[in-house]
Amino acid sequence: MEPQLLHGVTDSVATVVVRNPAKRNAMTAAMWAALPPLLDALAGDPGVRALVLAGEGGTFCAGADISTLQGSPVEAQRLAVAAEEALAAFPRPTLAAVRGHCVGGGAQLAAACDLRFAEQGALFGVTPARLGIVYPASATRRLVSLVGPATAKYLLFSGELIDAERALRTGLVDEVLPEGELGKRVAEFTRILASRSQLTQAAAKEFANGRTDRDAHWDEQARTSGDPAEGVAAFLERRPPRFTWTTATSG
């Protein structure tokens, strides 16, 4: 089976699956290059309200395919950073569903998602020190924002793997599920995400990611969207809200 990124949309949730079973779902250069345009296409689909990133089978992603680093490691890293930034910039909520190894470039992708749910037994590692590679500044800052400087240094300096429970304690993951329960919980939680206000989510994502120069924009969106009035009315009438704002209408 050729290494590839599989994707589909079900019930307003897009799923992207990393598939390279011969190398524990390691990302090839072609897969890194394919991710940004795939994300652009999914972002352009108004029916997509959340995105899940997963690995095929029992492994999330074992990192970059090391054989692709031999020719031009700088170019390989450029492709990885572009993919990471495209994932971080996806306009709707993103969630990494992690089973097994989430290492190197896999951890880089997981950290670029908004949320990370892991199955017990998952292992996480940031491993450039094993290869003498300088970890990208953007990825380092993102890791520090999740786990703090001390844990980021531990991971980066040592290249050691940590288990899901330690990842949960340090903030690298948001939930740890018993074996066999991850898929059910991810489906349940993404249904919740898809039912909530995209206006709230989009503004919160920008603010949480450090962008603070568009307060006026979001104030205007709140005034003109009708979503706040609909949310209050639905609450008082004890019915599910029918939010209409989407990223496509934001201007």
Score class of each variant (00 low, 15 high):
E84P: 00
A89M: 01
F90C: 06
P91S: 11
P91A: 07
R92L: 00
T94L: 01
A96W: 02
R99Y: 05
H101P: 02
V103G: 08
V103D: 14
A107V: 04
A107K: 02
Q108H: 03
L109Y: 11
A110R: 05
A112W: 02
D114I: 03
D114Y: 02
D114M: 09
L115H: 09
E119L: 11
T127L: 09
T127N: 15
P128S: 11
G132Y: 01
G132F: 00
S138T: 06
A139P: 02
T140F: 00
L143M: 03
S145T: 09
S145V: 06
S145P: 06
L146P: 04
T151S: 13
A152G: 07
L155V: 10
L156F: 09
F157N: 14
S158T: 14
S158V: 05
G159R: 11
I162A: 09
I162P: 14
I162L: 03
A164P: 04
E165K: 12
R166E: 14
A167E: 07
R169S: 10
R169L: 08
T170M: 05
E179M: 06
E179F: 01
L182A: 11
L182T: 12
K184S: 14
K184N: 13
R185D: 02
A187T: 08
F189G: 10
F189T: 14
F189H: 12
I192W: 09
L193P: 03
L193N: 08
A194C: 13
R196S: 09
S197Y: 14
Q198Y: 02
L199I: 10
T200E: 14
Q201T: 06
Q201I: 02
Q201F: 03
A204M: 15
K205M: 07
K205P: 04
E206W: 03
F207Q: 14
F207D: 12
A208Y: 06
N209D: 14
G210M: 03
R211V: 12
D213T: 15
A216K: 08
W218S: 11
E220A: 07
E220R: 13
